[in-house]
Amino acid sequence: MNPAPDDPNLRIAALTAEIDDVKRREAAFRAKMVNEFLDRGERNSYLHVLREELAGLLRRQQEAFADMELFTRMLEAEGQEKAALEVELEGIRRSWLWRLCAPLRASGSSPRAGSPVPPGGSPVKGGVFTYYLHTSPFRIYREPTFTLRGWAWPQDGRAVSAIRVDLDGRLFVGRHGLEEPEVIERHGPQPANPRPGFEVTFETPPGRHLLSLEAQLEPSEWRSIMKTSIWCVPPGA
């Protein structure tokens, strides 16, 4: 037999269930409110900013250690290749052909003589700059492009009118004239270069390259700020 629709026990049970449901939803709202409060507080705190910076530094340190290991392996491989080439050269020097060509070499007609610029080398002259690079170029390049950021001015007081990267003869023009208020505050006003910041994005195809970071100085002379060899590896290598 079904209970009557106005059975007080049924109504009490239904109301109790409804009250429990309201309590559960109210408690869930408060729990959500606490979580959101914590998330917001965490994001806004200086401690959180410092932790983020620390995590970033640790990541960069690990990358630097990995790069160092790779550089060491490359150095070892270069050393082995050099030793093998020296053995090969010694063999050539002992050969009768080498002895036969001795008069030719003495006359100065070496096939290497007269090459003005080494292959891949930038013809731009070096300059004396005060500079700093926020993104260090001394790394293993694993991405298809890289952005070099920093600031620079020539010590002769001339204005920088353009910035570029020369990578094995390929030129990548960057942006210059970016604000660096903390640098100016520290080094004093730079009348010719009040905004000494720059950034240059360049491609990094796999292989070894010669990188030259260059600035155009007034009136239109290009000078190299720094040069270095770089090694680029395919992504994930």
Binding site: V34, N35, F37
Partner: peptide, 20 residues
């Protein structure tokens, strides 16, 4: 469950009127 590191003595990391 959620863990929260307190910066100092007190519960300043938490909002008021929140817990049962």
């Amino acid at each position: 469950t959620r863990l929260v590191e307190l910066s100092t003595v007190g519960l300043q990391e938490f909002p008021e009127d929140a817990f049962d």
